[in-house]
Design a protein around this nucleic acid. Structure first.
Lengths: 196, 196
DNA sequence: CCTGTTTTGTATCGAGCGGTATGAAACTAG
DNA sequence: CTAGTTTCATACCGCTCGATACAAAACAGG
């Protein structure tokens, strides 16, 4: 089994470039030519290495969630529920208003605007978002069982609230709000957190 | 000056149909053929009556802000600042999870996903959003001057917070959350409101 | 009835879309 | 060097996009 002509590009860095484009332009707003230009490869190389546009987007989504979007999973490791919430919203500010990365959030962007053709993509993103919210809810349920949250608080509602706040921050960031402004939004939102 | 052949459609109801399509599919996700099918007219009639796609979208945006999105302006009429915030977030729930209308918010949807071609549309939506936030901020400044808000509270931050919460609610609604879930998000968010 | 004006329906435009066929190029194994 | 395999580069496919040309149809004024 001989190995043919070697690749002239690194797939991982190419995926990062594709991530940038999808992140800033969304799924439908991104053309294959945008991707090949940013990745520094040509069309057939893209299709051979990553499949079609939808396949590539799913790979990019994996990379996003494991990379920049990984703050959500790491926030669950905090010792107290309030700190989990703090990490979530502050990290959302960092992510969505970061320098060197596009404004806003890839998931929020791509779960929104979709013509009939991009519906499977939208459903995929929605499913991942749901999974993240469920993990957050499970974390808060554990906290309540441990007395880290009031007994009369609803973990599902708190998870959805935190999730909604991070979504709002992402929209505001994409809409032009600066980091300091978003930090104050996060701070105010945390005042709603139940005192244990 | 004779008047030629009469129109076979009502422009306002046609605009309402176009609004539904843009609302549910976003600007880029909507094709002219989607619009003509929903409006019950054919291409040349659309272009003659409303201009090109971007012109039509601007007219639709006007109609959205004066109609379904008018809750934001009406909320400012409440007598107390807290009631303004309450009306904003609860009306956002109504709007974005309403039956008979698409899920989510047209403005939130269209300020997000955009390829290079739709940038002027995005900027337009962003400007309108900014104007709404400025009106909310002015309302809260007045409230603070009247003692209706604590003297150490920042009206700009509060306006941005309320705006971000409504944005988060819109994203959650578009992402599949139900009305009752969103009502609890709104209720929790209002706990962050400063007590006068 | 005729003329002028506006709308309607059909058919089409060039451009860009996502996706591919086709070889030449660059490598490994023998 | 040759054979086999994989990638690269160009050109191209059918399709849909947004936007129009054109002529028939439906009205008002004279």
């Amino acid at each position: 089994m001989p190995g043919g002509r070697p690749r002239a590009f690194d797939p991982d860095t190419a995926l990062d470039r594709a991530l940038e484009v999808f992140w800033s332009q969304g799924y439908e707003g991104t053309a294959i030519s945008d991707l090949t230009a940013a990745m520094g490869i040509n069309r057939p190389s893209l299709y051979a290495a990553f499949g079609n546009k939808e396949d590539l987007f799913r790979k990019v989504l994996d990379r996003y969630i494991e990379g920049p979007g990984g703050f959500a999973a790491r926030a669950l490791d905090a010792s107290r529920a309030r700190e989990v919430a703090e990490r979530m919203v502050y990290a959302a500010v960092e992510l969505t208003s970061g320098t060197g990365t596009p404004r806003g959030c890839l998931s929020v962007r791509c779960v929104q605007a979709c013509g009939p053709e991009a519906e499977p993509v939208r459903d995929e993103v929605a499913a991942r978002r749901k999974a993240g919210e469920m993990a957050l809810r499970a974390r808060f349920e554990r906290a309540r069982d441990e007395g880290d949250l009031p007994a009369d608080s609803d973990p599902a509602d708190l998870a959805r609230f935190v999730h909604a706040v991070t979504d709002g921050i992402a929209v505001q960031a994409a809409s032009g709000a600066g980091r300091e402004d978003l930090l104050r939004v996060a701070e105010i939102a945390l005042r709603a957190w139940p005192s244990s």
